[in-house]
């Protein structure tokens, strides 16, 4: 009697344990369910729709639109310009952002914190507002032009050129770069810099041979992020650049709005996506380095 009750209890305990184990294994998935649903319905399905659209011709599926894209010199020029502008903007962000992140990381508290605060503040300001601000600054009656006139020469056209578009994009994307660099630089062990100086390196040698290489993961993170975001930039180059500085995102827009060519637009979107994925793969490869050095 007593034994059988113990038996039953044991059974009960065992089944409860199995149930608990299953629950524990399932719990992360239950938590992910809402997100997965949203991503699938609102993102993956439409994305597949676009890809399908790009290969769907009047006479069944074909890659004809891709052939058109890659043989059309106008489209290729837009793609090339987009890749080039993204590169310039990325390098601009890196060159301007590195010293800021360096100071913020080396002088944490005080100056460093103040710098970081300024960077994040511009990060939180609407990029549309910042774009209009640049229109005011760079316009023909703007700050820059008036300054040039005050100095006695007639300013060249800046607004509605590629230069203005690049300046605007660098400004808007700079916080991404600074924060990505800062995140890595801040984790660089100070005793490594001490060790380097103790072993006979000057400050500059320590920077070049220890700090700089150890900050490379941050540079890669920041560059990948800025480059990828830059590829899809629409409003800022549209508002600040000239009609001949159109990037691929704007081109996709006009395919739909003006030419109603959904298939061509879907093809260009697919090409843009492919380029982005390639860059992401490169990024992922290098990001692996970061993990190799730590842990």
């Amino acid at each position: 009697m007593a034994t059988s009750r113990m038996y039953a209890e044991d059974n009960f305990k065992a089944s409860r344990q199995i149930w608990r184990g299953a629950m524990r294994a399932a719990r992360p998935w239950i938590l992910l369910l809402p997100v997965l649903t949203v991503i699938t319905v609102l993102f993956l399905v439409p994305l597949l729709g676009i890809l399908r659209l790009s290969i769907l011709g009047e006479d069944g599926y074909s890659l004809a639109s891709y052939a058109t894209f890659f043989t059309d010199s106008f489209h290729l020029a837009v793609l090339g310009r987009t890749l080039g502008v993204a590169l310039i903007v990325t390098l601009g962000c890196l060159i301007l952002g590195y010293p800021v992140a360096y100071v913020a990381a080396r002088y944490a508290g005080g100056l460093g914190t103040a710098l970081l605060l300024i960077v994040t503040m511009s990060f939180w300001t609407s990029f549309l507002a910042r774009t209009y601000a640049w229109m005011v600054i760079l316009g023909s009656q703007g700050l820059v032009s008036n300054l040039a006139r005050a100095l006695g020469f007639e300013p060249p056209q800046i607004l509605f050129t590629g230069l203005a578009a690049n300046i605007g994009m660098i400004h808007i994307l700079l916080p991404f770069m600074v924060l990505a660099l800062f995140a890595v630089m801040q984790r660089i062990d100070r005793t490594l810099l001490r060790a380097s100086e103790g072993l006979g390196a000057t400050r500059f040698q320590t920077f070049r041979r220890v700090f700089l290489p150890l900050s490379v993961p941050g540079m890669i993170n920041g560059c990948a992020m800025v480059y990828i975001v830059c590829l899809g930039f629409y409003v800022t180059p549209e508002l600040l650049g000239g009609p001949r500085d159109q990037l691929i995102a704007r081109q996709i827009g006009s395919q739909i709005e003006q030419l109603l060519d959904w298939r061509e637009a879907a093809t260009m979107a697919a090409v843009l996506l492919a380029v982005t994925l390639v860059i992401y793969a490169v990024y992922d490869f290098f990001f692996g380095l970061d993990r190799l050095w730590r842990s």
Binding site: D189, T191, L192, R194, V210, P213, L214, W293, R294
Partner: peptide
């Protein structure tokens, strides 16, 4: 104490 070897 923490060795301070250059990880790269």
């Amino acid at each position: 104490q923490n060795y301070a070897l250059f990880p790269h």
